[in-house]
Amino acid sequence: MSEAETNRGQHDIGGLNVDSLIDRSEHRLSLSERRVDAMMNLLFAPDRKIFNIDEMRRAIETLPSDLYENYNYYERWTLAMEKLLIGKGIMTADEITAKVADVRARLKEAGVSA
């Protein structure tokens, strides 16, 4: 990799030497992915002023590189949304941790999760 390439952001990949073929198969979005997409679009809508689309891009582009590389598109969006909502003071990391625990317990109770 040239020096110019190593100075790029991890998202800035136009023209990089990637020789693998494109996986052209169509993927139907899951309901969860559709919700993440819709929530993000609601949150960065100009009339809501929670965050703007450039802040959202920045949040995705600055995810830790192992996450950026190894997680899929909507997983990155979910992590970026979490980061933004904490950063904007909409919710705290502790609140999220507590809610995740509630959700896990509820799903287990309902027999949905393993």
């Binding site: 969860s32 919700r35 929530m39 997983e75 909502l85 809610k99 799903l107 393993a114």
Partner: peptide, 20 residues
């Protein structure tokens, strides 16, 4: 949930949504 039990991201989606 499609394709098995919910993963961490599906659970995080539910948590963020309910907090919102």
């Amino acid at each position: 949930f499609e394709g098995g039990p919910p993963d961490d991201y599906e659970i995080l989606e539910i948590a963020l949504r309910e907090l919102l």
